[in-house]
């Protein structure tokens, strides 16, 4: 998942060390642009198109990881 952490760090404009599965998305700027950017990021690294509304409901990075696992299954 390091590609996901690196990508999220870029989206949130923070250092990669600040991103872990436990990270709360509300601590960053989890706005519509961040959601759109994350959707494109996951498409690029996992080849999976997430449901936008489900992604918007994620509260932690772990939630995003779980959504990717569910969609990829």
């Amino acid at each position: 998942m390091s590609a996901l952490f690196a990508g999220l760090a870029e989206i949130f404009e923070v250092d990669e060390s600040e991103i872990s599965s436990a990270s709360e998305l509300a601590a960053f700027n989890w706005d519509s642009l961040a959601i759109i950017s994350t959707l494109a990021l996951v498409d690029e690294i996992n080849g999976v198109l997430l449901d936008g509304q489900a992604l918007a409901k994620c509260e932690t990075v772990a939630d995003i990881e779980a959504l990717i696992a569910k969609e990829a299954a």
Partner: peptide
């Protein structure tokens, strides 16, 4: 719905 449009476009 920005994320929905993005997913549609990339798909």
């Amino acid at each position: 719905d920005g994320p929905g449009v993005m997913a549609f476009t990339l798909g």
